[in-house]
Design a protein around this nucleic acid. Structure first.
Length: 107
DNA sequence: GGGTTGACTGTTC
DNA sequence: CGAACAGCCAACC
């Protein structure tokens, strides 16, 4: 049951296992809109709950952290705090990117 | 390999 | 309802 696109994104993002990250495109595909990667980033940009939603766990498909409302450095710090090794603002997707099955389907 | 442009979707004013 | 914004992605030169 999908309330709204952003809510689904937030829900999926909350399903991301600790120590792992998901890409915008990955989340977009999970919500059923593989072309809505931009909308995903936009939903995070609105950040309805920056303290309850680990938006920093979402990175770009090429492994880059991308941007962050509070700053990329802040996001990198948060990722490292999760146990994710961040180098030059980038993470190893092959090591930290969670599987599509791990995200949890949104009803 | 690096940089720029275009294209698609969703929320918000 | 219409237009603008968003933290992107993919393709092209």
């Amino acid at each position: 049951m999908s309330r709204s696109f952003k809510d689904d994104v937030l829900e999926i993002m909350g399903s991301i296992p600790k120590g792992k990250v998901a890409t915008y495109k990955q989340i977009a595909r999970t919500v059923g809109k593989p072309r809505a990667a931009r909308a995903v980033g936009n939903a995070l940009a609105k950040n309805p709950d920056p303290e309850g939603i680990p938006c920093f766990k979402v990175v770009k498909s090429n492994g880059e952290i991308g941007d962050y409302v509070k700053g990329r450095e802040k996001k990198k710090e948060l990722l490292q705090d999760e146990g994710i090794e961040v180098e030059d603002g980038k993470v190893d997707l092959k090591t930290y990117q969670c599987e599509d099955s791990e995200l949890g389907s949104v009803c």
